[in-house]
Design a protein around this nucleic acid. Structure first.
Lengths: 210, 210
DNA sequence: TCCTAGACTTACGATCGTTAGCTTACGTCT
DNA sequence: AGACGTAAGCTAACGATCGTAAGTCTAGGA
């Protein structure tokens, strides 16, 4: 994590070969703006520049245009999410693995609601009309969904879940449930319904035996 | 549905007592802008005015400011959604009722993705910090969730679903699953996973017997 | 005839994305 | 040690759009 995000004095220029450092600082500034609670519109090219303590046009050395900044943020956070899921899948017990992975997903979403919203919130620019669906959700999809399918398989083999002819399909359904909860939490941060709704969702969608 | 949305000639002024008609036309224009595929940012006070064929300041006679327009759109679409769910809950067979209601929800979301996104997409303005969570989602929540809970109860009583000690909690979980699928479809419109994922979600979350 | 509801015209200040050109200091090379 | 090329970043400015305020026109009904 890059620390320079607020600045009073005029920022020291990077060393000769390290011009690329500014790229990370720009992304960090954009993320910081999101975390401050504003919505996506608060992340403008100029506000990012102000946050990073640089002049607005200096961004063009590292990003083609404004949407590219958001895209870079999404990609970074997607990688972070995938890493967190991998990290959470450590236990030996199948049930423990299932809940650990699912809760890691939910926790990350609740920890950074704004980031989650722009990650899965859809297309922000008319020009780049996909923005996330194809390359980026697939990179999470291919990784996270097979991870979920693996965990589901482990649950079936451990005899704690009912089998299925399409574990990948079940993994998709499970993810959709997690996404619904995560997104709703990210949006309203005060959910209706019981507090154990997460366990309820996971139990039902993983077909855990009762 | 108000028809006037595109205009060539300069629009006829409303009759004496019918000034309020313009309010509906403004909302319809905003919805039309959304449906044209742009994201939420395409709905500006001025673009709405252009679409409605009126001058921008004329909006202030009917809306306090720009976010109020979006709020009115959300409220209208929420009402429409609630009505559609009520309409779908007509069958006598419990299983039929369940799938009819759930599919009505999913269909409406897929028919108007942009509308669905702004309905549940979260807070767009820092000033009105809730925008949907409390009054509006509760108005749908109180209605749609009890409707879902009713249908779940009917399923249990018909013997096609496993019982539960908290049907309202199950209804929330079911809605979250529907929301996850609906939102993801609204965002990417090309989902990964099998085509029967909706049935899979509903079956699992309603605890239908296998 | 005249009042007033239902609009419109004009305009201000702010912000935005982006382009063009300039400055400065680091690292290298003689 | 000193000159110098260039990477790294800045200043200034353009045109467009936005939300909103202030004042003006106009036609339908009493």
């Amino acid at each position: 994590m890059v620390t320079r995000v607020t600045s009073t004095e005029p920022r020291k220029r990077n060393r000769r070969g390290e011009g690329g450092k500014l790229r990370e600082e720009i992304i960090a500034a954009a993320v910081a703006l999101l975390d401050e609670g504003g919505d996506e519109r608060a992340v403008t090219l100029r506000s990012v520049a102000r946050k990073a303590g640089i002049a607005a046009p200096s961004i063009y050395a590292h990003f083609a245009d404004q949407p590219s900044i958001m895209l870079a943020v999404v990609q970074q956070e997607m990688d972070r999410l995938a890493a967190a899921l991998r990290e959470a899948d450590k236990g030996s017990d199948a049930r423990e693995r299932l809940f650990s992975v699912c809760n890691a997903y939910l926790d990350l979403a609740q920890e950074h609601p704004q980031r989650y919203r722009i990650m899965f919130g859809g297309l922000w620019t008319p020009s780049v009309d996909s923005s996330i669906t194809d390359a980026d959700l697939d990179s999470l999809g291919a990784e996270a969904l097979t991870l979920l399918a693996d965990v589901l398989k482990a649950c079936v083999e451990a005899g704690i879940a009912h089998g299925s002819d399409d574990l990948y399909g079940d993994a998709v359904a499970l993810w959709l449930g997690l996404h619904g909860l995560a997104h709703q939490r990210a949006v309203v941060r005060k959910m209706p319904g019981p507090s154990d709704v997460a366990d309820r969702l996971i139990t039902a969608l993983a077909h855990l035996k009762r």
